[in-house]
Design a protein around this nucleic acid. Structure first.
Lengths: 342, 342
DNA sequence: TTTGTTTATGCAAACCTTTGCATGATACTA
DNA sequence: TAGTATCATGCAAAGGTTTGCATAAACAAA
C-alpha cells in the first residue's frame, strides 16, 4: 500500500499554525518571522516533506512533463535523438513522456491525445510515415500546446521544426560517387511518404543532372520500408537487371547493409565492381567489411536543438509569432565501400 | 498561450445545474434523470469536454504513469525492452515516463526521486552498472511504490525481478565451441559489477570445467565497458599473447564486432583459426561477414513480462507477500563465425 | 490616549473532480 | 389529507498548494 506523503497540513497541525504559514516558510516568503521559518524548515526536513507535484500542477497549470512521440524507439536514429532531448531537458527539471507510434497515423493521434490529457507542457514529435494529414497537429496547436516537429518535415504545417539537410547529404554522396568514376548510380529509397526520402531522392537526381548523367528509372528502386530486409529485396532487383549498376546510394545504412550481403552473395566485389553508400552512419557501419561509406547526421544535436526550442517557447509568456525552421548539416564519411577519388 | 480546458463547472454553469449533477451524468450514475443526462452528455460532447487528469490523479492518488529507468536508451537491447513494456502497457491506458541513467548511480537515484515526486504508479528499473547499493530501491519500496527490476539482478534485494538466464546462454555457447573442437577458448567480459557479466563468466567457466578444460587466466580479458571499442582493445591483448586463442566468447555482440575487426586486420581467419561468439543477437549481427554466432535473448518478452508483473501488482489492492523471480531462456544462434560440429 | 504603521498570521478561494449527506419535490398509499 | 416512499438535485468536503485579503498584535509617533 502506498504510504501517504507528508503534506503541508501535516506540518501545520504539528506546529499549531496554518498551512499558509508553512507554505510561506517553505517558499521563502518575506512575510514570516525568522524564528518560525527556522522551526518549520527543520520540521519539514525531519518529516521528510516534499511538495505534492500533482497539486502544484493543478494550481500552476503546468506539469513540467514533455511529450515525445517517435515512429520507433528501437532504432539507433531515434533513440539517439531522444538521448539529445533528454540531455537538454534533464537539467531544467523537465521529465519526458515517451511513446512510439510504430509508424501508425492513428496511434500517433491516440498518443498525443493521451498526453494532452495529462497536460504535458509541450510536444516533440517526429511524425509517422503515414501521417499525411496534419489536423491533429493543428488541433494541438490550437489548444495552446507548444509543438516542435523534428527530423521529418510536414510541408505546409506551421510549427517549429528541426530537420537535417537530407538533400545536401544525398547530393554530396552522389557527387562523390561520380567523382570516383561511377557511371551507373542506382538509388534504393525508403518510405515514399517521408520528407527525408523525398529530399534524399531529390539530392540524388540533382547530382546526376548537375553532371549531365541520364536518369534511368530502372536504377531507382522503391523499398517497402527502410529495413535491411527491404535492402536485400531491392538489391536483388538491381542485380537482376540486364546491366547492373556500378554504384548504389541507399536511403539508409540498414538498407545498405542488406544490399551489401546480397552483393557479396553474388560474388561481386565492393567497391571495385559496385560502390555502396548508406545514410545515418550507424555505429556498426564502420565495423562492416568493407566498412560502409555513409552520410553522418547530427542526430544527437537534432534532439538537443529541438528540446531547446521547445524550452524556449515554454519560457516565453507570449505566443511566438514566427516559427523557427532549423536545418542541420550532415557530412559524408568516406570508408571502404566506395572507390577512392582517382 | 494555453487555452483553458473546458471544465465540469463550465458545463454546469451553461446548463444552470450544479457540478455534481454534471459529474453524475458523465459517470453514468443512477441518481440522475435520463433527460438531463442526455442534455449534459450532448453539451459535453459539443464543448469538447474531457476530464482533467490532474484533478483526478490528486483525488484518486494515482496517475496511470509508470516510471522506467534504463542505463541507456541508445542501445538495441534496452530500447527493445522498452518496446515490450510499451506494448504491454499501452492498451491499459498507462503512460511511460522514461529516462536513462547513463550507468550513473547518482543519476539513477535522482531520476527515481523525480519520478516519485510526480507520483508515478510504479517503477520498472534496470539498474546502472554502478548501482552496488540498493538503499534507494528499499526506500522506494517503503514508500509503497511497486517496483520491478529487470535484466540486471540485484542480489539480496527483495523485489519482483525478471532476468535472462545468462549463465545458461554462456554455458550453451561455450559447450558448443568445445564440441566444435576449440581448445583455447578465451572470454572478453563487460563491466564486472553487472550480474549479467558475472553469470556469463560463470557459465563460461563451468562449461570449461565440465569438459575438463583448464582455466587460463590469460584468456580472460576484462573490458572497461561493453562497447565495440572495448572489444577492439581486448582482442588486441588476446592476439598479443604468445599463444593465441582458437575461440573467443564475448560478453556481447558489440564487443564481438570490435574483436572481429581486429582479427580480420591481423589476417586471421574466422572461423577457421578463431571461432567468435557474441551475446544479444543484435539485428545487424546476421549481416556481418562472417555472420556472427550469438546468444539470442528474449528481450522484448523481458519487457513485456516485467510490465505485466508491475500491472498485476497495481491491480492487487494488497501488498504482494512473495516476490516473483522470472528467468527467461536465451538461445544460441549458430552462424558463420563459429566452426561447425565435426 | 489616539492614530497610524509595521509585521506576522490566518482565512478562504482557486485549481477540478467525486461523493456522502441533506434537502426538496413529486407521486403514491393509507 | 396526512404521511411516506422515491427520486433528482445541490452542498460541502476532500485531495495539496499558493496567494490576495483581512485581521491581529505590537510598537512608534503625536
Amino acid at each position: 500500500m502506498k504510504k501517504d506523503q507528508v503534506t503541508i497540513t501535516d506540518l501545520a497541525r504539528e506546529l499549531n499554525v496554518s498551512p499558509s504559514t508553512v507554505s510561506r516558510a517553505l517558499n521563502n516568503s518575506p512575510f514570516i518571522s525568522e524564528e518560525r521559518k527556522k522551526v518549520i524548515l527543520e520540521l519539514a526536513k525531519k518529516m521528510n516533506y516534499s511538495p505534492n507535484q500533482l497539486a502544484l500542477s493543478l494550481l500552476n497549470k503546468r506539469t513540467k512533463i514533455l511529450g515525445v512521440v517517435v515512429p520507433e524507439i528501437t532504432s539507433y536514429y531515434f533513440s539517439t535523438a531522444i538521448n539529445g532531448i533528454q540531455d537538454k531537458v534533464g537539467s531544467s527539471g523537465y521529465k519526458l513522456m515517451i511513446s512510439q507510434s510504430n509508424e501508425s497515423f492513428e496511434e500517433e493521434i491516440r498518443l498525443m491525445e493521451a498526453m494532452a490529457l495529462v497536460r504535458v507542457d509541450g510536444f516533440l514529435i517526429s511524425p509517422s510515415s503515414n501521417t499525411l494529414n496534419y489536423d491533429h497537429f493543428e488541433k494541438i496547436k490550437d489548444s495552446g500546446f507548444p509543438l516542435v516537429i523534428f527530423d521529418r518535415d510536414c510541408v505546409g504545417l506551421e510549427a517549429d521544426k528541426v530537420v537535417v539537410d537530407d538533400y545536401s547529404g544525398a547530393f554530396q554522396a552522389v557527387e562523390y560517387l561520380i567523382q570516383t568514376g561511377c557511371q551507373r548510380i542506382a538509388h534504393i529509397t525508403g518510405s515514399t511518404n517521408l520528407s527525408t526520402t523525398q529530399h534524399r531522392r531529390k539530392g540524388y537526381l540533382d547530382a546526376l543532372q548537375n553532371n549531365n548523367f541520364p536518369i534511368l528509372e530502372d536504377l531507382i528502386v522503391i523499398g517497402d520500408d527502410s529495413s535491411s530486409e527491404s535492402g536485400v529485396a531491392c538489391m536483388q532487383k538491381l542485380l537482376d537487371l540486364r546491366q547492373i549498376p556500378d554504384a548504389v546510394f541507399c536511403y539508409n545504412d540498414a538498407i545498405a547493409i542488406g544490399a551489401m550481403s546480397v552483393i557479396r552473395e553474388r560474388g561481386i566485389e565492393i567497391p571495385d565492381q559496385i560502390s555502396l553508400v548508406g545514410f545515418d552512419d550507424e555505429p556498426y557501419s564502420s565495423y562492416f567489411k568493407p566498412s560502409l561509406t555513409s552520410v553522418w547526421q547530427p542526430i544527437y544535436d537534432l534532439g538537443l536543438l529541438s528540446a531547446k526550442i521547445l524550452l524556449d517557447n515554454l519560457e516565453m509568456e507570449k505566443e511566438n509569432p514566427n516559427y523557427r525552421f532549423e536545418v542541420l548539416k550532415p557530412e559524408l564519411v568516406i570508408r571502404e565501400s566506395s572507390r577512392k577519388i582517382i
